[in-house]
């Protein structure tokens, strides 16, 4: 699968308050706010477009703690 060779982020839906700061921060528009709601009643952000460059902009902009984790593909991989 193509994603194996790509960077990606994980957004923990339980920790997201849906402020969308990450959506604006992402230079490649990979993130969107979905229509599902989480246990706090917020529509949470999700990783939607697989063009992540693992720059960490979403991670540093996010005001929550550990809501976003950024994974970079290993050089050795694939």
């Amino acid at each position: 699968m193509a994603t194996e060779e790509k960077n990606y982020i994980e957004i923990n839906p339980r920790r997201c308050k849906g402020c969308a700061a990450c959506v604006v921060a992402c230079p490649n528009d990979c993130i969107e706010v979905g229509s599902e709601i989480n246990q706090m009643g917020y529509q949470f952000a999700r990783f939607a477009v697989n063009k992540c460059i693992a720059c960490g902009m979403c991670f540093y902009t996010c005001p929550e703690f550990g809501a976003i984790t950024v994974y970079k593909k290993s050089r050795k991989g694939a």
Partner: peptide, 17 residues
């Protein structure tokens, strides 16, 4: 998103957490 979570994590390193 869950499609991406199921990747083999050995292929990736955590860059920001």
């Amino acid at each position: 998103p869950s499609c991406f979570f199921m990747e083999n994590k050995e292929m990736h390193t955590i860059k920001h957490q």
